[in-house]
Design a binder for these strands. Structure first.
Length: 906
DNA sequence: AGGGTCAG
DNA sequence: CTGACCCT
């Protein structure tokens, strides 16, 4: 390997990093919803090159849009590539802009792929005696490696020279093209040899050196794969050509023509600010000559860090004294398990000032663990502080901490701030609100990952098994980051009065309410469910046998893949619909259709629905009963649904069956303890009522004011019939129309729902809007508003950003428009029931603590356990409070029922 | 429209 | 990860 004195030229394959950064990094967005993960990834990679190759000329190359010579060579080239995700497409222009502002040459050559530009420049540079480093994430580039060309993957920090290629692939750089031709490429749609993977290709090339010689001796290859090779011999030259990176493209410039420029610091600063890349903003601001005039809010500096692990009594006591005096402190628990109902606290961490935090371990019990403070002492000292509601705390998802502390007899009060909720209210569309994502997004800091200290997979340690050396900094960091996030996020909320009110008056007060409901759990009749399971098993076995006879062979009824084979290959049933990937669908509506003419689909349908009931409910629910309490404890998630709704998991209590008789039997297993009944109260037609209120449509308001059956009233209007003459069929159609409106449904969707022609569905919609012009206006306005401001709001001011509302892709744009219509209704309903929950919980705790408690929420329904003697009183108070949770131009009707089980209560 | 879970 | 299916 020859050494030159001059530093190498670095050619950057920008496009390859673009895709890798997009998929590998957490989906960052700005507080306004602009996705930035790929930008951050690509730019930080490019910035690193300056350190890795000081003094080198860095040239960045991107693919241009449009076709290339490979498309002309082979029209199927990249034919099956899905369109670029919108979230990625919007990040390309900013990346280009930043690279230019950094002063780096940016090459985008029309009709030439980045690979070929790089190949050509690399060839030219080496001819001039300059060494080349190609920075890429794409292994195909290995074909360019030579004595003067090295590959480096800056994201994974690996380099590959000639020897490296041999090590990695088992063959030399000159053989890579032949290798690629043999293997083919599914994504780019390059044909290869059927069933020939990397192993086979390498084996062949090691024996025959290259493709030509291999094809010459193709008859020596035995077996099916030999046949495949001979069958492919015609197209292999084409594959080879497609896989070959060009080194002789006609470019209008040479490697010496491209020169770096001075960086435009003002421009960079503006862009980094816009994209909310705090650390880079800080870094630039500190550099001389750049005065940050546009800054209204100071970006948080990364403080010096002083984290301590406290095992000394005096030191701990001192911390407690400081906590008592603090106006607010950040707080976090470390526990043995993520499951709050079984988790035990093994340590707690605190922070009062940024950069300074302490971890107090008391339950680490691995071999050789240092002596720690007594759990009883630590928790005993902290208890008065934690239970003092005037002592303010901030945390990340404090509901969890409240739940686990309850296992130690501590009732956490004073939850005055929660960073997870701050982030959620600021931008519910941001896909994740966990601490690690928030730290990266708002503080520009990567946190210690749990995996890095606990390991992963089966060998993952629980927190009590992690050494104090590792656990200390991790836990202290959690408290520190939480405090600093709060200091960053809270002012952002305060600047938006409506969002601030949603946070303070709706989501924060709900935290203890949800915590109580989770801890209470709900009672389950496990014995009945188990019996039900056995019955289902018998019925399923019968169905399975019948299906096998019908199909003429045994197969797995639960496998859509095997089913496709039987249906469409063996039995030749007509294909009605295909899955997104092009395979014939066996989805429910398809089978429903086929069931008219064939017996097998009917059997499958019944088997499927029973199998779902059994695996998800009758088998699983009894397993979820806590041995400690004998009840099931769900988790409610407050920062998952973009619209403001809650979600529920482990188990999901918000999707317990109700549609079929068989399903309702599962609801019958949700029961109340001795002396109690279940009361279920739900808002009647809440979303349509909200639509009436928001749109102000006269007819709709009137219908609700008069307490009419809304679907019947709609049918009378749309079909121009007197109310008393509306048929069942007409009412059913009207109901589908009403649902469609809530979902922002199109004529297409409605036609499918109703099973009528699209034209007919459009007529219904036109008629509806004609009869309810206020609704039509409202829909137009909300769509326009969404396009103009990029977000929509609920009645209470909860905001939902719609990043795809102005997407170039029409389908995405239309989906965003449907969300724009649905979100204010769904979200306002969520706000209303959350408000009701807070009021109802406080009322019950104040005056009916022994008689009634809320145990479940299912979007528009609250389920309570109520002592038999108090039922009338509680129902009256409950329905009144739910009705008054919002003041709308329509009455909020609440319907309540009582029963020994959830099914009966309806 | 928004969710969660299961089996393959 | 996908397809299917349970809920409001």
């Amino acid at each position: 390997m020859s050494q030159t004195q001059t530093p190498p030229v670095v050619l950057v394959d920008g496009s390859s990093y673009l895709f890798r950064a997009f998929h590998a990094l957490p989906p960052l967005t700005t507080s306004k919803g602009q996705p930035t993960g790929a930008i951050k990834g690509v730019i930080s990679m490019i910035r690193r090159l300056d350190q890795d190759f000081p003094g080198s000329k860095v040239v960045v190359v991107f693919d241009a849009k449009g076709k290339t010579f490979r498309h002309e060579l082979y029209e199927e080239y990249k034919a099956h590539r899905p369109p670029m995700p919108e979230d990625l497409a919007t990040q390309i222009a900013p990346i280009h802009e930043i690279i230019r502002a950094m002063g780096l040459p940016l090459l985008i050559v029309p009709n030439v792929e980045a690979d070929d530009v790089i190949g050509t420049l690399a060839c030219e540079a080496t001819a001039k005696g300059v060494d080349v480093v190609i920075s890429t994430g794409d292994k195909d580039m290995a074909q360019l490696v030579s004595d003067h060309v090295t590959l480096v993957n800056t994201m994974t920090e690996t380099t590959m020279d000639r020897e490296g290629v041999k090590e990695k692939f088992g063959i030399g750089p000159e053989q890579i093209v032949d290798y690629l031709a043999l293997v083919g490429d599914k994504v780019d749609n390059i044909p290869g040899v059927e069933k020939c993977g990397p192993k086979t290709a390498v084996k062949w090339l090691q024996s025959y050196e290259n493709l030509d010689k291999l094809v010459e001796h193709a008859d020596e290859i035995k077996g099916k794969i030999g046949d495949n090779l001979r069958a492919a011999s015609e197209i292999l030259p084409l594959s080879r050509e497609l896989a070959t990176i060009k080194v002789d493209v006609e470019l209008e410039f040479g490697i010496t023509d491209v020169q770096p420029d001075e960086p435009d610091r003002e421009k960079l600063l503006a862009m980094f600010k816009e994209l909310e890349f705090k650390t880079w903003v800080d870094e630039l601001s500190r550099q001389e000559g750049v005065v940050d005039v546009s800054s209204e809010e100071s970006t948080p500096e990364t403080p010096e860090k002083h984290y301590s692990t406290v095992t000394d009594k005096a030191e701990f006591d001192e911390w407690v004294e400081r906590l008592k005096k603090a106006d607010i402190f950040a707080f976090d628990t470390e526990t043995t398990s993520l499951n709050y109902s079984t988790a035990e606290v093994v340590g707690v961490s605190f922070a009062i000032e940024p950069g300074e935090a302490a971890y107090v371990p008391f339950g680490h019990d691995y071999m050789g663990a240092p002596e720690q403070l007594e759990p009883n002492y630590v928790l005993g000292q902290l208890k008065p502080l934690l239970e003092d509601s005037s002592q303010k705390k901030v945390g990340q998802n404090l509901k969890y901490d409240k739940n686990v502390l309850a296992n130690h007899g501590i009732s956490l009060e004073g939850i005055t701030e929660d960073t997870m909720l701050e982030s959620y209210v600021l931008n519910s569309t941001a896909s994740r609100h966990d601490m690690d994502s928030l730290a990266l997004k708002y503080l520009g800091e990567a946190t210690i990952s749990f995996e890095s200290i606990a390991g992963k997979g089966a060998k993952q340690l629980t927190f009590n098994q992690i050494s104090l050396e590792q656990a200390g900094p991790y836990a202290a960091e959690d408290a520190d980051i939480t405090l600093r996030l709060h200091r960053t996020l809270r002012p952002k909320l305060a600047a938006e009065p409506k969002l601030d009110s949603v946070y303070q008056n709706i989501d924060l007060p709900l935290v203890p309410v949800l915590s109580h409901m989770e801890q209470r759990g709900v009672m389950l009749d496990s014995a009945t469910l188990r019996r039900h399971s056995q019955e289902l098993a018998i019925r399923m076995a019968e169905l399975e046998q019948a299906a096998h006879e019908e199909a003429g062979e045994p197969f797995n009824l639960g496998s859509p893949k095997q089913l496709q084979a039987i249906f469409y290959e063996k039995l030749g049933l007509p294909v009605i619909k295909k899955t997104p990937k092009g395979a014939p669908s066996t989805a429910e509506p398809v089978l429903q259709e086929l069931a008219h003419e064939y017996k097998l689909p009917h059997l499958i349908l019944e088997h499927r629905s029973l199998s779902k009931l059994k695996s998800t409910y009758t088998d699983r629910l009894p397993e979820m009963v806590s041995p400690r309490t004998g009840r099931v404890h769900t988790s409610y998630h407050q920062a998952v649904a973009a619209t403001g709704r809650l979600s529920s998991s482990e188990p999901n209590l918000q999707n317990i069956p109700i549609r079929t008789e068989e399903g309702r039997r599962i609801r019958q297993a949700f029961i109340a303890p001795e002396g109690y009944k279940l009361v279920a109260a739900d808002y009647s037609q809440i979303e349509l009522r909200i639509m009436a209120h928001l749109s102000g449509d006269k007819s709709l308001l009137k219908a609700f004011a008069e307490g009419k059956d809304i679907h019947r009233a709609t049918a009378a209007e749309v079909f121009d019939t007197p109310v008393e003459d509306v048929t069942g069929e007409q009412r059913r159609s009207a109901k589908a129309i009403n649902f469609g409106l809530i979902y922002g449904m199109s004529a297409f969707g409605l036609s499918r729902q109703l099973g009528v022609e699209r034209k007919v569905a459009q007529e219904y919609i036109d008629l509806y809007f004609h009869r309810y012009p206020g609704v039509a206006d409202y829909m137009d306005n909300i769509r326009k508003l969404a396009h103009d401001q990029g977000y929509v709001e609920t009645l209470f001011g909860r905001r939902l950003y719609l990043p795809e509302i102005n997407a170039r892709n029409k389908q995405m744009q239309q989906a965003a428009e449907r969300t724009a219509i649905n979100a204010p209704m769904q979200g306002t309903a969520a706000d209303i029931i959350k408000r009701a929950m807070v009021t109802v919980e406080n009322w019950l705790l104040d005056s009916h603590a022994e008689e009634a408690r809320m145990v479940m929420q299912v979007h528009d329904e609250l389920i309570l356990e109520v002592k038999e003697s108090a039922i009338d009183k509680v129902i009256a108070g409950l329905t009144e409070r739910m009705s008054k949770a919002a003041e709308l131009d329509v009455p909020l009707l609440v319907e309540a029922g009582v029963g020994d089980n959830w099914d009966e209560a309806h």
